[in-house]
């Protein structure tokens, strides 16, 4: 793992992954959106509004997945002092924030026709909102401290404390079960969803994940380049 602590090595790996990730992303987005918006049936209860779900559900999945990525990166950064792990956490958090915001926004747009209101204080909605705040706190702490390394490790501690919140999100449906749908894809007895609805959902989930990989790698490369720049400019000032 420490082999990729070398920025040049990491850049080589990133450049090798990026073209493939982009192809997967483009193909999955095109095919998934085609399926979701045209080639899938309208729901007999929800009508055309069900199509919001194809955008909403993968965003909610990614919101949680990205926080796990931040937490794992934070753990790696704190325990093994892996320099790129700090950057990975820093690079992933804003992406997670956007996914969380997208999940909240599409959830509200779906809730208006379905529940008759944009917002209900249901357990899952609320804990996704809390997740949104956790991302904000993590990013704010990164900015609050001057020294990059210290800021990153402080934010990492916060991320690990906040990861306690992830199981609360996952199980909040059972705890404060109110208006929100019970989980219908991840069930022991198999998906309760018809296949022609599951397919666009999973395709878009792949598309979101590929998007995450592409943006994460680009942001990490950007961070590395920014560090190079700051080192160069400080050398210039000295020399």
């Amino acid at each position: 793992m420490h082999r990729f602590a070398n920025p040049a090595e990491f850049n080589r790996l990133a450049d090798a992954i990026l073209p493939w990730a982009k192809v997967v992303m483009a193909a999955a987005f095109l095919y998934g959106l085609y399926l979701a918006l045209y080639a899938s049936p309208a729901d007999y209860q929800q009508g055309e509004s069900v199509r919001i779900m194809y955008i909403h559900v993968p965003a909610a999945w990614m919101a949680m997945f990205t926080y796990m990525v931040v937490a794992v990166a934070s753990f790696t950064a704190l325990v093994w002092r892996h320099p790129l792990a700090l950057l990975a956490g820093k690079a992933a958090a804003p992406i997670g924030l956007v996914f969380t915001g997208l999940a909240l926004l599409t959830g509200m747009l779906w809730g208006k026709p379905m529940w008759g209101t944009y917002w209900v204080w249901d357990g899952r909605l609320t804990s996704v909102l809390v997740l949104f705040f956790l991302y904000l706190g993590y990013m704010a702490l990164w900015r609050a401290l001057d020294e990059e390394d210290k800021a990153g490790r402080a934010a990492s501690i916060l991320a690990l404390v906040g990861v306690v919140n992830i199981p609360i999100i996952k199980f909040s449906v059972d705890w404060w079960n109110t208006l929100h749908q019970p989980a219908s894809v991840m069930r022991m007895d198999g998906p309760s969803m018809p296949v022609e609805m599951l397919w666009p959902l999973l395709t878009l989930a792949v598309a979101y994940k590929a998007y995450f990989v592409v943006v994460l790698l680009y942001r990490m490369k950007l961070e590395i380049n920014l560090r190079k720049l700051s080192v160069l400019s400080s050398l210039e000032v000295q020399g």
């Binding site: 809390v130 704010a140 702490l141 916060l158």
Partner: peptide, 22 residues
Amino acid sequence: LTVSVRRGGVLMSLLVLPLYVP
């Protein structure tokens, strides 16, 4: 976490309040 931040009180609320929810 905010001990070295000047006027860290507001930042601290942002960090801590979400964790107070449960």
